[in-house]
Amino acid sequence: MTTVEPTATAVADLVRNTLSTHKSLFLATSGSDGSWVGGVYFAESDPFTLNLVLERRGRTLAAIQENPVVSLVVSTGSPMQPFLQAQALAEIVAGEQDTRVREQLVAKVPEAAPFLDAPVAAVRLSVRGWRATDIANGWLPGRDLPAPRVAN
């Protein structure tokens, strides 16, 4: 079987499509209480910036406060469906940024609105780069899509 190497555009398209068609992701953290994985709703500002809210007194937020480097998976749960993996830097945001995160989240995931009435913190994830896997199309191992470099 011959496999055609996907273009950077094809990988970027798969990342954008996967993010737009999923409302939730699995977020892995690590802190003094150990490693932890939880499912959360999210909304993307762009393919490398994801927004979510976390319970203020929860284990996930406590771990992020200790260690802001997180890992995530965007997937249906089936390895035969395209899925994304990444590491990201988590930042707890406040003020206008908090408001914007909440607005974006509810715009994409209306059923997340009740969570905003609970004691939650807005969090922004800056994704370092994506690993996109699409086994049905021969992308095993997955293909990488690095985040664009930001000029200083």
Rank of each mutant, 00 (worst) to 15 (best):
W130Q: 10
G77Q: 09
T76I: 09
Q85Y: 01
Q97E: 15
T29L: 04
T49Y: 05
A121V: 06
D134K: 07
Y41W: 13
N67K: 10
G31S: 03
A86V: 05
G77T: 12
N17D: 15
F42A: 10
F26I: 13
V69A: 11
A28Q: 01
F26C: 07
V70S: 08
Q104T: 05
G34C: 03
A121S: 15
A90N: 03
P119L: 00
A122H: 04
P119Y: 00
S78N: 14
Q65Y: 03
V106R: 01
N51P: 04
V93S: 05
L19K: 13
V93N: 06
K23Y: 08
P110A: 05
N17L: 12
N17S: 15
L50F: 05
A63P: 00
L25G: 07
T76Y: 00
L116A: 02
E96G: 12
V127M: 05
S75M: 06
R59L: 11
E66W: 03
L25V: 09
T21R: 15
T99E: 15
P68R: 01
F26Y: 01
S45T: 12
G95P: 14
E96L: 10
G58D: 14
A122E: 10
L61N: 12
V69E: 13
G31L: 05
A112K: 00
N17I: 00
A132K: 13
L125S: 02
M80P: 00
V109L: 04
R100S: 11
L125R: 07
P110T: 09
P68W: 03
V70H: 01
L72E: 06
T21E: 12
R124V: 15
K23E: 13
T49C: 14
G38N: 11
T99G: 02
A90I: 09
T133F: 00
A90V: 06
A118W: 09
N67S: 12
L54R: 02
S126M: 06
V70F: 08
T76D: 13
E111F: 08
F26K: 11
L19M: 07
L72D: 05
S30R: 10
